[in-house]
Design a protein around this nucleic acid. Structure first.
Length: 934
DNA sequence: TGTTCAAATGTTTTT
DNA sequence: CATTTGAACA
């Protein structure tokens, strides 16, 4: 067990009263929270299911969970049931809460930022967009479709997440809000805010008298289940999230909040610093523990950081005094604040320095043997990557220095995507076939052995909008995939090197995702209009929507310089950090022109509205975060930017030059010999869902196409049928667990509640509804008397493989048979065909998960097919398979980390059912799935 | 130190 | 196209 400082130990041990941990940068707070939770489990004070921990990102959650599991294993505490501990985001928690406990919401789909905006624009009136008014200089103006939808959505966000004074909000906005809410409900959507909002409303109104069995269960779950709540990054909690925290602790759960007010950098997203500042005043007998030992950085970095934080008025900060307690030595010349005459000088110097630091000796920990610094030990942090990082990127390219950049990956800027966009310009006849061909030639996307004419023929057929009545046949995704297929495009027959071809395929895959986003909202528009709208959207809207796509293909961590915004660097550290472009008006950043949310919701209606605009002190906190990312070498630089707005030095830059530990002239590179550059290796956390893993087992290359490149199968008109059945049965089983046994007469009611088939035409919808009712009735008839033996429904389970690989999933049903055997059940319906061995694998993974959950083996696995006359299977859990499956998951993790995801050597059963064979190899049989194509 | 006006500007991002 | 900056002027 690691040794802890007295204050760390105090925090770990405090489990009786409300605890506030004030954690300075680099103070090891994740370790402290992990240890505290591990100790709670070891002492028997809490079962895993009594613990809920919130983080702000999935990544942080994965890391926290991994640490806890390690500590629990080290301590020799049982890991049984660990899957029932919730460690994740508030959004994840609320979504889960709703979708497991509130039957009405089982069928809801989640809107992303992109699909929400598409929905608002598509339904510009019904969403309230064009009825909402912005008051500019006293004159109300209606918001406009496309132009103001982003603004409208952010206003809706603030309205729901902040404590907005209803009386000061114009009625036009309130009506618009009602319209939007209504639209979400009728279409069966939850946006990110609605997830939390609905959950909070549920929790705040829990009524022990409620006679609904599900509502009672939810009440019991919160009252008796949640005993310890931990909230990480508490400084970033907004008012709605604070309500969630209150609601979850209303029955006396212990609350522990962890954060650093100096690192509040998301005010403009609603973070309310006062939550953390006044925490002690708002809760009785709070224990406050300050972790002010910074183990990450040298004295120089720590003191410079602290001096920045101390420019914030005392009343707006929690008292703390960060001190350097790590092993990094400060040496004169480590901290530089340099002023350059031109942008080019600045950028060249940064690259020189990065090259010069390579091989410099560095120790990651007091006991570690020194290693030579490498590319990945350097990070360049910008206030705005999109505005300022361009010149550096050019210079790094010129010098062949590897880098990864976050914040400037504009999907639509690549020639590949431009060529793809042209497909749809051709579809709506704004360019000619020749123009299209030129674009594809320019983008080097025409395979060595391809049939261009056949590909264009696909489009010609596709744009004949007189082919049939059903709108579902004018499927954009289908046209796209068919076009690629006709062209004969493969990852290995594109021009260029392996990496270029991989990147090109990645772009094609991402575009498939773009289509899915659009088509989810526009599926049933009249065909011609749908293609028109798509082409227009690609031209005007989409480039900004996809302004920063994730560009890492896979889990491999390259040895490369990181370029990122300060925001994205939060929580990370590097031996050497550069903070360039410290220009006035950029950092601290000022002003925002144009129409803003305050034209829609008056400033006076929002308490602390200032924070949405960003204050100087907010920027100081951001600068503080930037500085404290550095372990040893820190370079703050300035050069005048283009235009006189950015032609002066930032006050933060001047602050640094005045600091005594900072040098303002380049003393040259650190003295001493050079070692071989050795990047720090950190194996990426891999969390796979059961279904992802299933695809991997089916075919690693299919997995890559689907999840790493992002290819999506065409939307199917019957989509939602399988899920509806699942959800209906899930309600049946959940109610059964609470002793509420449903009978055949409820079949219709269940289907009404759960079947959601947004893409079905009326005829099909009726037909699906009938078969769903039949299926549910059939299930209740044949299995009704077994319901009382239900053990778990939609039980979350996990499989942990020691080295950061976690498989996460949910089992449809676990029940006890009258023979007293425990059986794991998976429901199947008219899903895509799946090979039997894959199903067997899948159920054995469940069996492994069950074992981790309960500490006991399941006896049987069953596949219950809900289709009429279909065959169901039941077999014993196979011990050999149970053991081997763990090894195979482990191997999958290794393969993912190494990006070794090959296709099968020859055509096989997996190819038969693969949605993307066409992009992989020639089809064995020439016939395609006729039904889907009409 | 305050007022006026022309010129220049368009961040940051998780779920 | 609304807002903010910074210089010119009072």
């Amino acid at each position: 067990m690691p040794t802890y400082t007295p204050s760390q130990s105090e925090a770990i041990a405090c489990v009786e009263e409300p605890l506030q941990i004030i954690a300075c940068a680099g103070s090891g707070k994740t370790q402290v929270i992990s240890q505290r939770i591990a100790d709670l489990l070891a002492s028997g004070r809490a079962e895993p299911r009594n613990i809920v921990a919130f983080t702000f990102t999935e990544r942080a959650a994965a890391e926290l969970k991994d640490r806890i599991v390690h500590l629990v294993e080290e301590a020799g505490t049982s890991t049984v049931g660990l899957a029932e501990m919730f460690i994740g985001t508030m959004h994840g928690y609320c979504l889960d809460l709703l979708q497991r406990n509130v039957p009405e919401t089982f069928k809801y789909n989640v809107l992303t930022d992109i699909t929400a905006r598409l929905l608002v624009d598509r339904n510009s009136r019904q969403s309230g967009l064009t009825t909402c008014e912005a008051v500019v200089n006293g004159t109300p103006k209606k918001l406009r479709r496309f132009v103001n939808s982003r603004l409208y959505l952010s206003a809706l966000g603030i309205f729901r997440e902040d404590d907005v004074d209803q009386n000061r909000v114009p009625s036009s906005f309130k009506m618009a809000f009602e319209a939007y809410t209504h639209l979400l409900r009728t279409k069966g959507y939850l946006d990110y805010t609605a997830m939390i909002q609905l959950a909070v409303e549920m929790l705040e109104n829990l009524d022990p008298e409620d006679d609904d069995s599900m509502a009672q269960a939810l009440h019991g779950y919160v009252r008796d289940g949640v005993k310890f709540l931990v909230v990480d990054e508490y400084q970033d909690v907004n008012p709605l999230q604070e309500r969630l925290i209150r609601a979850l602790t209303q029955f006396g759960a212990n609350l522990c909040v962890v954060g650093d007010d100096d690192q509040t950098i998301y005010q403009w997203r609603g973070s309310e610093v006062s939550n953390i500042i006044t925490f002690a005043r708002r809760h009785a007998s709070v224990r406050q523990v300050t972790l002010d030992d910074n183990f990450r950085s040298s004295r120089g970095v720590v003191e410079l950081g602290r001096s920045i934080a101390e420019t914030i008025p005392v009343g707006d900060r929690l008292a703390k005094r960060m001190v350097a307690s790590g092993h990094q030595e400060w040496e004169r010349g480590d901290l530089l604040a340099l002023d350059f005459g031109t942008e080019n000088d600045e950028v060249r110097w940064i690259c020189d320095r990065i090259e010069g630091l390579r091989g410099v000796s560095f120790c990651d920990s007091p006991s570690a043997t020194p290693r030579g610094l490498s590319w990945s030990d350097c990070a360049v942090l910008y206030r705005s990557v999109s505005a300022d990082a361009g010149p550096l990127v050019d210079e790094l390219r010129r010098r062949d220095i590897p880098f990864v950049i976050k914040g400037l990956n504009r999907l639509f800027d690549s020639p590949e995507v431009a060529a793809v966009v042209n497909i749809f310009d051709y579809m709506v006849e704004t360019i000619s076939a020749a123009g299209l061909r030129t674009a594809w030639e320019t983008a080097e996307l025409i395979p060595t052995s391809g049939s261009w004419d056949a590909a264009v023929a696909v489009l010609d057929t596709g744009r004949d909008f007189e082919r049939g009545q059903r709108w579902g046949i004018y499927n954009i995704q289908r046209v796209y995939l068919d076009f690629l297929e006709a062209l004969g495009i493969r990852e290995d027959n594109l021009p260029g090197q392996r990496e270029r071809r991989e990147l090109a395929f990645y772009q094609l895959g991402k575009f498939s995702q773009v289509i899915s986003d659009f088509e989810e909202i526009h599926f049933s528009s009249t065909p011609a209009e749908k293609y028109q709208a798509f082409a227009k959207w690609l031209q005007y809207q989409a480039p900004d929507y996809y302004a920063d796509v994730d560009d890492d293909v896979g889990y491999a961590t390259p040895d490369a310089v990181t370029i990122s915004t300060v925001h994205q660097a939060k929580g990370m550290q590097w031996p050497a950090v550069f903070v360039p472009c410290l220009r006035r008006n950029r950092f601290p950043s000022k002003r925002q022109g144009g129409l803003n949310v305050f034209h829609v919701i008056p400033e006076s209606a929002i308490p602390g509205a200032d924070r949405y605009k960003g204050t100087r002190d907010d920027e100081a906190r951001l600068f503080y975060v930037a500085i404290t990312r550095a372990q040893k070498y820190l370079h703050i630089t300035y050069s005048p930017g283009a235009g006189k707005f950015y032609g002066k030095r930032s006050e933060f830059f001047d602050h640094c030059t005045r600091h005594s530990l900072v040098s303002t002239r380049d003393p040259g590179l650190p003295a001493g010999g050079r070692l071989t550059p050795q990047p720090k290796v950190e194996a990426a956390q891999i969390t796979l869902s059961f279904s992802e893993l299933k695809y991997y087992f089916e075919c690693p290359y299919q997995f890559k196409m689907r999840f790493l490149y992002g290819f999506n199968a065409p939307l199917h008109e019957a989509l939602g049928y399988g899920k509806g059945l699942h959800d209906a049965l899930s309600e049946v089983h959940k109610r059964a667990i609470h002793g509420d046994l449903v009978t055949v007469s409820s079949a219709k009611d269940l289907v009404d509640r759960h079947l959601h088939t947004p893409y079905a035409y009326p005829e099909l919808r009726k037909q699906l509804e009938r078969s769903a009712i039949d299926a549910v009735a059939r299930y209740l008839t044949t299995h009704g008397d077994e319901l009382a033996l239900t053990l778990h429904s939609e039980q979350p389970i996990q499989v942990h493989l020691g080295d950061g690989v976690v498989v996460d999933g949910r089992v449809d049903l676990i029940r006890r048979l009258d023979t007293d055997e425990v059986s794991i059940v998976d429901f199947k319906s008219t899903d895509r065909a799946q090979q039997e061995e894959v199903t067997r694998d899948q159920l054995h993974i469940y069996a492994v998960g069950y074992q981790e959950l309960k500490g006991e083996r399941a006896d049987l696995i069953e596949v219950l097919n809900l289709d009429p006359g279909a065959k169901s299977t039941r077999e014993q859990v196979d011990d050999a398979l149970l053991t081997s499956i763990r090894d195979r998951i482990q191997a999958a993790g290794t393969a993912l980390r190494e990006n070794d995801l090959p296709r099968h050597v020859s055509w096989c059963g997996a190819c038969e059912s693969c949605d993307f064979v066409a992009l992989c190899r020639p089809r064995e049989s020439n016939q395609r799935d006729g039904a889907e194509r009409e």
